[in-house]
Design a protein around this nucleic acid. Structure first.
Length: 296
DNA sequence: AAGGTCCTCAACCGCAACGGA
DNA sequence: ATCCGTTGCGGTTGAGGACCT
């Protein structure tokens, strides 16, 4: 059975998003919330398919996204998680709430892979046990690894999840929502410096710079931008503070603030310490997995 | 300065998974 | 149980900037 295209290909715009499109999308989502992506192009007049809108939001516009400048900790975390989970970028990203799966995937493919390869080559002839784990999933896994992978991964993930739940319960008396969770719950963290900058840049541009046709829904939205920008901009500009007046903004900002205050260091500490320990325990039973765990 | 090559990353594509009818 | 629409995910691509000659 032929799968229908996700969108009508005729008249659908592709390629880089313009600031105007970004703002239309942001203002729409700010009003209606993410989801029901099918309706987004129709309701906004954006000549983009729903998929493109969702991707743009999740990978770029969504508040709380940190872009570029991966820290050493993040690098190690990604490497560690990649060794544990393989190329399951969404799962890895769930442990790095400020990073998108796409970003992590790109960073892995463009930086970390090479870095690890270099390190591996540099340590050729020496004991490379600390690197085996890094590259085993990304390059070639042993057959024994493959045969046990599903089993030990499932067990590991269950262990991790249970441990995290316990940890969460232990620490969540005051702020249970602060712990990042592997579950892909949407996080409306603040930051969004990109958006704030985008809005600033957009505002300094000539009005109507993006409007081409006179009667499109897009233009009608564009014409209302000055008004629409107010809540959007306050949404983003206030997201670093907890003071917003509108209720919806408040809840969003509260989540934003909470997400920004995620005690990553605690998580990371736990992940690196307990994760490694758990892996040791979990994988000891699976024999040849152990040399992948001696990561750091 | 100009042309060529390399590198990065935003965005696309297609399949999988999920949930409702 | 099956179909169908929607969303999520991972692999891949290509535009454009950075770097090299």
């Amino acid at each position: 059975m032929g799968r229908p295209p996700c969108c009508d290909k005729i008249g659908v715009k592709k390629g880089p998003w313009t600031p105007e499109e970004d703002i239309i999308l942001v203002s729409y989502i700010q009003e209606h919330g993410p989801g029901n992506w099918r309706a987004v192009p129709t309701n906004t007049g954006l000549r983009r398919c729903s998929k493109s809108c969702r991707l743009r939001w999740t990978n770029y516009l969504r508040p709380g996204i940190k872009r570029g400048n991966f820290t050493e900790k993040e690098e190690k975390m990604i490497i560690h998680l990649q060794a544990l989970l393989g190329n399951r970028w969404a799962a890895i990203a769930s442990y790095l709430p400020q990073r998108t799966d796409n970003d992590i995937k790109n960073y892995w493919n463009t930086h970390l892979k090479k870095k690890l390869k270099k390190l591996e080559e540099g340590q050729d002839g020496q004991n490379t046990s600390s690197l085996v784990g890094f590259s085993s999933n990304s390059t070639s896994s042993t057959s024994s690894h493959n045969s046990n992978k599903g089993q030990w991964e499932r067990r590991l993930q269950t262990d991790i999840h249970m441990a995290k739940q316990a940890l969460c319960e232990a620490l969540s008396i005051e702020k249970p929502e602060l712990l990042p969770s592997p579950s892909p719950s949407p996080i409306y963290a603040s930051s969004a410096e990109n958006i704030a900058r985008l809005l600033e840049n957009w505002k300094t541009r000539k009005p109507n710079s993006g409007a081409s046709s006179s009667s499109s829904p897009q233009e009608s939205m564009t014409q209302n931008f000055n008004e629409e920008l107010k809540p959007v901009q306050s949404f983003y500009s206030n997201s670093n503070s907890s003071t917003t007046t509108d209720d919806s903004h408040q809840s969003v900002s509260a989540e934003a603030e909470a997400a920004q205050q995620v005690p990553l260091s605690l998580l990371e500490k736990w992940l690196f310490e307990e994760g490694v320990n758990m892996m040791d325990m979990s994988l000891d039973a699976d024999h040849d997995q152990t040399d992948q765990i001696d990561l750091f």
